[in-house]
Amino acid sequence: MKNNDISEYHYKFVLGVKSMSKISNLLEMIMIIQYKGLTTASELAQTLGVDKKTVYRYISSLNKANIPVYTKKGRYGGFYIDKNFYMKPVDLTKEELTALLMASEMLTTQNEFVYERELKSAVYKIKNVCVNSKMDLNDIDDTGNFSMDYIGNTENLENKISKVNYSMNKGRSLNINYFSINKSNLTMRKVDPYNLIFKQGDWYIIGYCHMKDDVESFKLNRIKSLEVSSDIYIRPHNFSLKDYLRDHWELFMEGNIKVVVKFNRNISSFIKEVQWTVNQNVAELENGNVLLSFYVDDVEDVKEWVMGFGRNAEVIEPEKLRKNIKLELEELYKKY
């Protein structure tokens, strides 16, 4: 199959994904610049997974939209946003959040509600940005699903980010009281913060954990409290945020489904040339085939797209998507 033989559907898919990716990146960029105060193009590029030229194009787009982003030149320069501009995250009450969650469980396709997937997606996004919830440890339910996301109730978002930024600027370690999902309890951690990033609707501290003796990520909304210590640390020169995000992307994709598709060498060049999703990874195989992997919220989003490549594409994972395509092909076989 030649590149010009690829159907119009595939190009529409690419255009749609690129448009959504840009909107998502622009929103993340606003949040990062707003809360961090001063951010460099390199740091934005690493966090968003794009190059510097794209960052500058994003800044231009924000300025055209009357978002007051300015540039400070010099050795310690970067981008900053006018202090009079403020885009505050959603701050719903406990009762409002509970109502949303209950609605998402009750309104389903079985009850003839046709927008079940869209509702669940919207509620998921609201949960992830509603970091100023007033919940406490007593609000953890039997499933552990709801208030774990809002365990950081002692301090609000602004105070946490302010302390993290101060500790990084002064080279001081942080003492955090962190809620561990695996152990279902609070643990005291000493962390040397390397970066503060905003990914998939959540803020994360990327830094060296003295207890684990390794670089880890910590969700801000799972931090019960944090204090800047008097202990001095120096960020390693060989630490790369870009490499860390590449190797630990799954940490920032909670609840999403990994999709791996093997493409025939006949169209491998085309697959490698196109940016299909913001989180994709392409691996070349010895026989000329390629493996494309990325994350989605629902396998139905990509079933028709994969089938459009015909025999040139094979789903490796997840098994659910393989079975769905197999059933679809069986139905087609019966018709023809």
Rank of each mutant, 00 (worst) to 15 (best):
S217E: 12
V274G: 03
V123G: 04
E155Q: 15
K73H: 11
I161R: 02
F85L: 05
L157T: 10
L48E: 02
K170H: 12
E300H: 07
K163Q: 13
G201A: 09
R311Q: 09
Y194L: 06
N165Y: 07
Y178G: 02
L15F: 14
A99H: 10
F79H: 07
Y58M: 14
L329E: 11
Q34M: 06
E28W: 02
N312H: 13
V282N: 05
T54D: 03
P318A: 07
L245N: 04
M307Y: 04
R172H: 13
N138Q: 12
S240N: 10
V123R: 03
G308R: 03
D91V: 09
P193E: 02
D141P: 03
I271N: 00
G308M: 06
D91E: 15
E319W: 10
R235T: 08
D192I: 03
N281I: 10
G78F: 04
V215G: 01
E330D: 12
S162H: 10
L101F: 09
L251K: 12
L332H: 11
H10N: 11
N132I: 03
T109G: 01
E28F: 02
V315T: 04
E319N: 12
C130N: 15
S293R: 06
N84E: 12
G308A: 07
R246T: 14
E216G: 05
V14K: 15
V129R: 01
R189Q: 06
K2Q: 12
R57M: 07
M29V: 04
K199W: 05
L285K: 13
W203R: 03
D297Y: 02
S167L: 04
V131Y: 05
E331I: 10
V191W: 00
V50R: 05
V191D: 01
G144Y: 04
S7R: 11
D213Y: 09
K303A: 08
E112Y: 08
N185H: 10
M29N: 02
K134R: 12
N63G: 11
K242E: 14
S21W: 03
M20W: 07
I181E: 12
I81S: 02
I271G: 01
M188Y: 14
S104F: 03
Q34I: 00
G171E: 07
M307S: 07
R235H: 05
A103P: 05
I267S: 03
N153F: 14
K320V: 13
I316K: 04
G308V: 02
L321D: 01
I206V: 15
E155V: 11
K53Y: 08
